[in-house]
Design a binder for these strands. Sequence first.
DNA 1: ATGAAAGCGCTAACAG
DNA 2: CTGTTAGCGCTTTCAT
Lengths: 335, 335
Amino acid sequence: MVSVEVAEKVRDVARKLGYLRNPLASGLRTRRSHTVGVLIPDLTNPVFPPIIRGIERTLAAHGYVALLADSGNSSKNKQALTEGLLARQIDGLILATAHRKDKLVEKCLDFGIPLVLVNRTVDKHHVASVINDDELGIKLAFDHLVGLGHRRIAFVGGPQNTSTAHERYRAFLKLARLAGLAVERQLTANSDAFTEAAGQSAMNRILASHPEPFTAVITANDLLALGCLDAFHEWGLRCPADISLTGFNHVRFMDRLKPRLTTIQIPHDELGVRAALLLLEQIGKETAPTTIRLKPRLVTGDSTRAPSKNQRWPAADPVKAPRSTRHPRAVLGAS
Amino acid sequence: MVSVEVAEKVRDVARKLGYLRNPLASGLRTRRSHTVGVLIPDLTNPVFPPIIRGIERTLAAHGYVALLADSGNSSKNKQALTEGLLARQIDGLILATAHRKDKLVEKCLDFGIPLVLVNRTVDKHHVASVINDDELGIKLAFDHLVGLGHRRIAFVGGPQNTSTAHERYRAFLKLARLAGLAVERQLTANSDAFTEAAGQSAMNRILASHPEPFTAVITANDLLALGCLDAFHEWGLRCPADISLTGFNHVRFMDRLKPRLTTIQIPHDELGVRAALLLLEQIGKETAPTTIRLKPRLVTGDSTRAPSKNQRWPAADPVKAPRSTRHPRAVLGAS
DNA sequence: ATGAAAGCGCTAACAG
DNA sequence: CTGTTAGCGCTTTCAT
């Protein structure tokens, strides 16, 4: 070994000459690319940026870099993009796109690449996952509403092929049963996307079934909640005067809406950080698949209040406007 | 050459065996990684996700993949992350972090790597850039307000070391001069970040100088506009009853705020798409640095209306609350 | 035309 | 312990 100061000098000169070690070449030899794939369903969905940020920051701190791929909610893309990532010799993969039964997840497991699911997981929990405690989240909303005196509570859920939507729906049914509330089929509607348009249409379905008046709605997602507000508007219902409403996810700016939305805050940043750490650990050495479940908390706005004695309730269907152009493009969302 | 069908068969078998060409190895030989670095200042700022999405989608369509790095607004990180990206043999670099005089941009130019700036550019425009036409944007807002009858208009700008903030500020001064409006120093304030907190404090400075009443405010960014709303609230001013307000960027959900914000929509997606295309072109062959300037458009909400005959105006400073904890963490924003 | 061989930049295994 | 060499998977060049 040469003296430390000479070594330092060499390094200095190397830097000055603009030498940068080529990690691709070294990776060719060591089969380590120090690169991780991150596949998300839709960057535009406000849920994901903070997660990605957490992932990226943590990876960078460990000398890794993120290959970002946005599937645009298309499973064809998912497939193709993942193949591209794998070909690029990524050391591991973080998927934010998982469905409850997910072909791609199975393939990746078969492939044997270190894999971590974030935000959503699969039914068979044999994959490392970092998710929100959705049951707790719904419980927080439910208890909050019941505490305010609500007894007839409706539910607007998301696509049941995602673990988040499914868990939230199940949690609602369970809590309602435990609390001794009659769970009427009419009072729940699951939409096929986590979007405002889908939420609006779900709430419309509930209201169009002319149920006995209910005083509160729990939704599985903030965007769905926004859609409910649109539906309320159509039917001449006021929030929170006639109906209380809760969201889920605490998307930015929700505290600046007409009624500030009461919602469930999930630790997005930490979700990303923990996912990255879990993956790095797995890359280091074989590990048994863990599921990390982070605790959400309730953020109270003013979209919830005690039920009113003289609730206004629509006598008939609203006059349909020619076309509600509020949501021109159906952008598929996610949670 | 063997027959086409045999070639096809071989490819099929190769796929079935799970063969994926290793682009790292081929890149070692060809000095093409088919990889592009994307450096952004803060993923959490709602301006960037759609830009990145546009970039990522376009790159993917051309067989490229994005190495995403989030500098968290720190220039040390910028430096380090960029070095990491360059070492990884990226074929090109997209920077969304540029300042008007940007050391890093100069370095990258010296390095000779294909470079495209997006959203913001540098003063010496010798770099390929895809930006918004900020002068036009401010003109749209200005003309809208003047058209409504406003004559005394204030301006809240952003950090003048970014081209966006600088252009918007200059455009405002120019338009005011051309329209023959007296431009009082008191009526303009540039904040040091594109955040709600910075906007609030800037508007507070203006109001605390006790200027002759003004009837409208143009801001250089939606988040700054939100901060202005907070300041209005502190001073007992109503928007739009007492003061009209315009934003800039058309951030999502701005159309659901208390007063729906009148703002300037810039084509974020296209910004990303065009930046990616410009970079790919440059990677293909040496090209003269172009600046692409995309056209924004006005989105009218109800934060703007004709000036009121009986405008309410604060007689004294507001009673200071112990501390406005509205913005606990100062998160540096960007535009 | 077809096939063998060299080498991209690096590291790990190997002699010296 | 130090210095040399082979080879990661691919492309390109050079013989055949």
